[in-house]
Design a protein around this nucleic acid. Sequence first.
DNA 1: GACTTTTAAATGTCAGACAAATAAAATCTC
DNA 2: GAGATTTTATTTGTCTGACATTTAAAAGTC
Lengths: 243, 243
Amino acid sequence: MKIDPRKPADLSAQIAQAIRDAIISGQLIVDERLPSEAELSDQFQVSRPTVREALKRLAAQSLIRTQRGASGGAFVNRISFEDAYSQQITTSTLLLSMNAVSFDTACEARFALERACAPLSAQRRTSDQLATMRAEIFRQAQPGLSDEAFCASDVAFHRALVDGADNPVLSYQLAGAVEAMQPLMNMITFTARSREEIIALHNQIADALEQRDAAKVDATLVELEAYTRKLAEDVAQQFRKPA
Amino acid sequence: MKIDPRKPADLSAQIAQAIRDAIISGQLIVDERLPSEAELSDQFQVSRPTVREALKRLAAQSLIRTQRGASGGAFVNRISFEDAYSQQITTSTLLLSMNAVSFDTACEARFALERACAPLSAQRRTSDQLATMRAEIFRQAQPGLSDEAFCASDVAFHRALVDGADNPVLSYQLAGAVEAMQPLMNMITFTARSREEIIALHNQIADALEQRDAAKVDATLVELEAYTRKLAEDVAQQFRKPA
DNA sequence: GACTTTTAAATGTCAGACAAATAAAATCTC
DNA sequence: GAGATTTTATTTGTCTGACATTTAAAAGTC
């Protein structure tokens, strides 16, 4: 684990990369304690603040955790799916908002991924997950529900669908796509009429999953995608020629 | 943008979160310059090293970039798809290696996502992308190719397939799944026989894409998934009862 | 006016110090 | 001696102040 002394700038970045590489390559294993900050500054021949900046970079990526006190220090962190979720959601959200990804592109990606889960979910969904979906549908039908709450329930519904595939890697990959779209979805005003339509489709999906009918889930998701895009198109229209 | 003075520990984490929230919520827009470190330490009533640790956390997530010199400082960064790729690959790789995700689970997720791209790719793939895939197939057929190089070419082939969908969000989401699996794939020894089989399937996929036959691409991907799992199973067998 | 030099502002780095937390060791009490 | 308490050492968290380096803009020079 060494750094290049010829490039003097960004020592903390270099040190972070060196430690990161050591973790990824398996030289440092989970829960192993890194040398203390003082020892690291000795090893790398830099000051402690510089080492600390490097460690904070790694902490930001959940690669390490730190503990104070005697026998404390920095430990290689076992990244949890939750950590990975939240990081991916942050990244995806910014990516969508900053890079001017069109609603259609994001929507297409989201439903493509969701359709990828559908057959597995039809096979494996538990009755618990089905109950969650039914509960969310019930919530969505409540009158007086705000648009934000409706969207949040929509996300919960689709997460249950994805979790039904019983593949944590898929759940993780999709969390980003689904949750990152929420700000975009929140721009849509859900009228009573459109909610009714969406709820009907959600019910169709739940029914199809109950019967383990993968083809019908898929077909309904296609319908839902088309309808979602149509709603977004309507919003775009309104912006173009406002009342 | 404030921090809670009641929780004295981890000031830099709190400050990082405050700035992160400001960026995500749009209070700080792309390319906007943050206050200087001195000003930030004034605002948050902390020392400059603490502010710096916070900024390094954000830099690790590519949320900001810094420039030295007069009129330098920290600027809100427009996250590029490339940045997002590499972050996701890092996270996914660690997630797979640390959480003991089974090969089957990872493989299932990867092919499910890839199959989600297939129909779009069949519609939209350019002749360039097709040429890339052919070139990689040619490379895979070279005798004397190392297993690692074969794997790398395999990844390049599948990335071309995914990029054919012409949806950067999908490409981004999938990059993690495909690239993160490479270490797992590298454990497989590709015999001349198995390479032949894989190349044949790759050729089938390329042919089907050339004819824009989505159904055949999908069917071949299913075959490829089954074959990949079989190879992994053979490796597992060997480990169980070594010669 | 074009080129060079100076200057000021900002990040990058360092050294040394103290505070706070924490676990282990030492001490005390019964 | 066992258990409770205190002390101590280690480690991270934070602060202060300083200097180095980079860079753009201002000032100066021809």
